[in-house]
């Protein structure tokens, strides 16, 4: 008789299976995009460090046997 009316009107619907499929495909897409971004960033950084060298004013070319500090 004195049942909580909020409980009487509580929704009891089950989520459709299509939502699960949509969520999982969106999640996989996000993961793919994140990996792509990671790969791009990693490659971008490595290619940057491959091509750029910091040289002093007199170091126009690196010496064949050892660097500047190895001279006697």
């Amino acid at each position: 008789m004195s049942q909580n009316p909020f409980q009487i009107i509580r929704p009891t619907d089950k989520p459709p299976e299509t939502i699960r499929k949509e969520v999982m495909s969106s999640v996989k897409l996000v993961m793919l995009l994140m990996r792509f971004v990671q790969l791009f960033m990693a490659d971008y950084a490595s290619s940057l460090f491959d091509k750029v060298r910091l040289l002093g004013p007199s170091d126009t070319h690196p010496k064949k046997n050892g660097g500047p500090g190895t001279d006697r």
Partner: peptide, 23 residues
């Protein structure tokens, strides 16, 4: 991150979230 493992979380909470959204 792993989609399959996230699916386990989804299965546990989807009904509650869906019903909350309807409410």
């Amino acid at each position: 991150m792993d989609a399959e493992r996230f699916g386990v979380l989804y299965d546990r909470y989807a009904e509650r979230v869906f019903q909350k959204c309807i409410g």
